[in-house]
């Protein structure tokens, strides 16, 4: 989003992107959310470099360090800032690696669903007629069922696995984008600039790709931000229920689930801290999304 084109740097030229950035920075809460998000994403990306321990490397784990409360140290003086789980795994490292899985699932399923929804929605808007009706009926039917139910059905069918969770979450989400793109494209294609482009006898694909598409993006970006948070929550929920990611690639939801039984005996940290990590991630995405919606909403623009 900070990738401003070099042209935009010229003074007094107010590009939409620049206006967007300025208006976005208007809200302190949103900036805080964005900063947190950048921190979270980068710590997930660089988890192998910053994590005190490789939680997957079983040879590094010592069962003697099992269930250490937060802040305690082992015999070699290594401090477990967030405590350890029953296998002596450092919880902070587990959370950093778990974030990778959670974010991977959240972002990739959203990206694929966005691409599918974009294509399908554009086709529906541009083709019109019975194809449009058929696509939108399918979208309506799918959206009348809650996402978690559809995801559960798909995972009951597909089985466990990171790739399968991504497939299920993509299938759950595409309909939102298709609907959003279609309604945006229907509004935009009646506008004068499209008519002007048509008068210039520009090829149809150029009109769609260069004129229509960029103008349909703002509402889509808003939906996508909120959906990333949804996808991450949904993945955590599915993994908690035991139908999501496998034990070998634990996500935050998985970590929370495995700490659940210890919670009842007072060893709260095993599932409290992954839960907090999940919460902060989702809240920061939602804060960014809320501000984007306000900035990009044409009805609120002055």
């Amino acid at each position: 989003m900070t990738a401003a084109s070099p042209v935009a740097a010229a003074p007094r030229v107010q590009t939409p992107l620049k206006r967007f950035v300025v208006e976005f920075l208007d809200s302190r809460v949103a900036v805080l959310g964005l900063a947190l998000l950048v921190l979270i994403v980068s710590s997930a990306l660089f988890a192998p470099l910053i994590a005190p321990q490789d939680p997957y490397d079983l040879s590094k784990l010592d069962i003697m360090n099992g269930m250490l409360p937060p802040g305690s140290a082992d015999m070699d003086g290594n401090v477990f800032w967030l405590g350890s789980d029953e296998q002596g795994r450092d919880l902070m490292s587990a959370i950093l690696y778990g974030l990778r899985t959670s974010l991977l699932v959240g972002f990739s399923s959203t990206a694929v669903a966005l691409a599918i929804g974009l294509v399908v929605g554009m086709i529906a808007a541009y083709a019109g007629g019975s194809l449009d009706a058929a696509i939108m009926r399918l979208v309506d039917i799918q959206l009348s069922f809650p996402a978690i139910l559809i995801a559960l059905i798909l995972l009951a069918v597909l089985g466990k696995g990171v790739d399968k969770v991504i497939i299920a979450l993509t299938a759950v989400q595409w309909a939102y984008y298709a609907r959003t793109v279609r309604s945006a494209a229907l509004v935009e294609r009646r506008k004068e600039y499209v008519e002007a482009a048509q008068c210039l006898a520009l090829p149809k694909q150029r009109i769609v790709l260069r004129h229509l598409l960029p103008n349909c993006l703002p509402p889509l970006i808003v939906v996508a931000t909120v959906q990333v948070a949804h996808a991450i929550t949904l993945e955590a929920t599915l993994s908690f229920l035991g139908v999501g990611v496998p034990v070998t690639e634990p996500s935050l939801g998985m970590l929370i689930a495995s700490g659940f039984s210890y919670m009842l005996s007072g060893e709260f940290w095993v599932s409290l801290f992954p839960g907090l990590a999940l919460l902060v991630t989702i809240v920061s995405i939602n804060l960014v999304g809320d501000q984007m919606r306000d900035v990009l909403n044409p009805r609120l623009q002055h």
Partner: peptide
């Protein structure tokens, strides 16, 4: 209400158990 939207249901359930039951 934003918090209510963001909190994962299952995690809130666990916190409720921890607070009111345990």
């Amino acid at each position: 209400s934003i918090l209510g939207f963001s909190l994962p249901t299952f995690w809130v359930g666990m916190l409720l158990i921890m607070a009111f039951a345990v």
